[in-house]
């Protein structure tokens, strides 16, 4: 690996850590600015003496800097308090919800790739034709569609009118279908636009022209040469879009009663189960920062100079 790649990765890693620290700090500031955490983080019916005990245990009688450092060390250990609603540690609730969100996000990711790539590549191959234009239009419709509206339409049609698919719960694979489509379609619109641009770009490159000159068919060229080259940019694309996917998951999981992170977050906010809210927010931050770092590392490996320049330029 080149020195400049290492440098760029090092820079990005430090920057991710700083971002993570700032996010944790933001949560701490929100927590402290909102009032006494012993009011916020303990169930309302807690007796005053126990409340006081917790105040001492959490160090709320100590100076704010000490409190901040305590908070950091608790976050680092994953100790984020207990849920009011279930008496379980907040971290454990988060850990239980994560696989469900990964399942939903992962299948949406696959579906979006499948639909988006095939539409995008088709549009690029038919560049400038009516097919191209209508596919672009479909993509625009797709990513302009609010997730919650799409979810409701799908429920209305498939669960209530046709009665072929369940509208809520997670007890069987069939339950996965509607939430996956809901989350995937807007994403597929973006993938399609991205894939179209990427394909058009790649088709102009010399190695593709060489392959075509060798007599390979258009589809063979795309599958054999262009697609493998597009995989890394696609991964990077998803790394950047992860925040959007998670935002979409909050709404989708709520609509379909899918017991993932997003649903946990909304339920906890509605029940004012603040330790859990805090834990979910921190977990989501971690996921996003890590996937951004992943994108940056990919970028650094592929194109060290550009990446380093971008890093330094961005850092000022």
């Amino acid at each position: 690996m080149k020195m400049s790649s290492l440098k760029a990765i090092g820079f990005r890693a430090v920057r991710s850590l700083v971002t993570l620290l700032l996010c944790v700090t933001l949560v701490f500031v929100i927590l402290r600015a909102a009032g006494d955490p012993s009011e916020e983080l303990l169930p309302p019916e807690t007796p005053p003496d126990i409340r006081q005990e917790y105040r001492v245990q959490w160090g709320l009688d100590r100076p704010i800097v000490v409190q901040y450092l305590n908070f950091l060390s608790r976050v680092a250990r994953g100790d984020l308090g207990e849920s009011f609603a279930s008496d379980l540690p907040a971290t454990e609730l988060v850990m239980r919800a994560i696989p469900k969100t990964i399942l939903l996000g992962g299948s949406a990711f696959l579906l979006a790739t499948l639909i988006g790539m095939s539409l995008g590549v088709t549009a690029a191959l038919r560049h400038g034709t009516a097919v191209d234009r209508s596919l672009i239009a479909a993509a625009v419709l797709g990513y302009s569609m609010p997730v919650f509206f799409l979810g409701i339409l799908l429920i209305l049609v498939f669960a209530l009118q046709l009665r072929v698919l369940p509208s809520s719960g997670s007890s069987s694979p069939v339950h996965l279908i509607l939430p996956t489509i809901t989350l995937a379609l807007p994403l597929a619109g973006r993938v399609a636009r991205f894939a179209r641009t990427a394909t058009l770009e790649v088709m102009g490159k010399p190695f593709i022209r060489t392959a075509r000159a060798k007599g390979l068919g258009q589809l063979a060229v795309i599958l054999g040469h262009a697609l493998p080259n597009a995989m890394v940019p696609l991964l990077m694309f998803f790394g950047i879009e992860i925040g959007l996917i998670l935002s979409g998951a909050v709404v989708t999981e709520t609509i379909f009663a899918w017991p993932g992170l997003g649903r946990l977050l909304v339920d906890s906010v509605n029940m004012r189960d603040l330790p859990v809210v805090q834990a979910v927010i921190l977990m989501i931050t971690l996921i996003i920062v890590l996937s951004n770092l992943f994108v940056d590392i990919l970028h650094a490996l592929l194109d060290p100079k550009v990446s380093l320049a971008r890093t330094l330029g961005g850092a000022g």
Partner: peptide
């Protein structure tokens, strides 16, 4: 740095955190 934080934490989550507390 503030821009980085905003990028790391989509506004939906920032909003939910503030509204919750």
């Amino acid at each position: 740095m503030l821009c980085d934080v905003q990028t790391a934490l989509p506004s939906l989550f920032i909003a939910i955190a503030f509204l919750a507390f």
